[in-house]
Simulated assay, not measured.
Amino acid sequence: MDWTVIQAAIPNFVAGLKITLWMSFVGILGSLIVGLFCSLIQYFKLPVIAKIISVYVEVSRNTPLLIQLFFLYYAFPVIGWKMSAGTCGVVGLTFLGGSYMAEAFTGGFKGITQSQIDAGKAIGMNRKQLARYVIFPQGLSLSVPALAANVIFLIKETSIFSVIAIPELTNTALDLIGIYYRSNEYLFMLVVAYAIILIPLSIILTLLERKVRYGSFGN
């Protein structure tokens, strides 16, 4: 292990880290928006649209991100829709993450007891008020553990972006290995870079889970 090699490569990995963080942030934010929208449609069983959403969720969850990226990056230009590698990566991450977030939100909404809904109806709440004051706030709290796991999962999935030449962390490491043949040093830096992102985030998300957890579900 040559520490001078590691020191010289730090600027490259910092640049890759910034790209990874930015694309993760945009992709996860998009995933949360898409997931919440899809989940509400499925929960309230809106005709026709709910079935379309179910198809999207099944297709997205049962195809690898690698295949989705290849399709977006290489197939779409054939029909005249060309995207940059960065846009393709964000769209792919949002497409995949939206389905996982939808399932997480749906699980939280379904976790609300029928007695809570009946109590809301008993005091005269309509469907919109039930969604706003009963279903959404409680379902969101119940969804936090699954949402947190999905956030970690999606950040790790950004390593797939290397296949479409986005200069994120994995691509940076592979490029440096190809140029200088110093696998040990650059792979070590890759592990450290992901640890810098994921370990603090995991701690923060764990604390958030404890904060929003209902008393009946633990301390």
Results as ranks from 00 to 15, higher is better:
R213D: 04
I33Y: 12
E168V: 09
L201K: 10
K45E: 11
L93W: 15
L17A: 15
G89L: 07
Y56P: 00
L66M: 06
L65Y: 03
S24R: 06
L187I: 03
T63Q: 06
I10P: 09
F95E: 06
I117V: 14
V163W: 13
A165I: 13
L65G: 03
S31A: 12
A193K: 03
D118L: 10
G80F: 02
Y43C: 03
A9S: 08
M101E: 09
L96G: 01
I112L: 06
L40S: 04
I199A: 01
L36A: 02
G107M: 09
K45Y: 05
M23R: 10
R182V: 10
I52K: 02
A8C: 03
V134L: 02
T87K: 15
G35I: 00
A102E: 13
A15D: 12
R127D: 12
L36I: 01
F109N: 03
T170P: 01
I160W: 10
L201Q: 07
A119C: 01
P167M: 02
G30R: 11
Y194E: 02
W22T: 14
G108N: 04
K211F: 06
L69G: 13
I135N: 05
L69W: 13
L187D: 00
T94E: 02
F76Q: 09
L130N: 07
S143V: 00
S216N: 08
I152R: 12
E185H: 02
G108T: 02
T20P: 01
T113E: 15
D175R: 15
V26Y: 11
N184L: 12
V59Q: 03
F136I: 14
I164V: 14
K128Y: 09
L205S: 08
M125Q: 04
L142W: 02
L93P: 14
I160D: 01
K110N: 15
L130M: 12
L21R: 05
L140F: 06
L17S: 14
L66E: 09
F13H: 01
E157L: 08
K51F: 03
T63L: 06
S60D: 09
T113W: 04
V26I: 15
I197P: 02
V55Q: 00
G120R: 07
L66F: 11
P64L: 12
G80V: 12
R213M: 10
F37N: 03
S162Q: 12
G218L: 04
I52F: 13
F37G: 01
M1W: 14
I160C: 02
R61I: 09
D175Y: 11
D2T: 09
L21A: 15
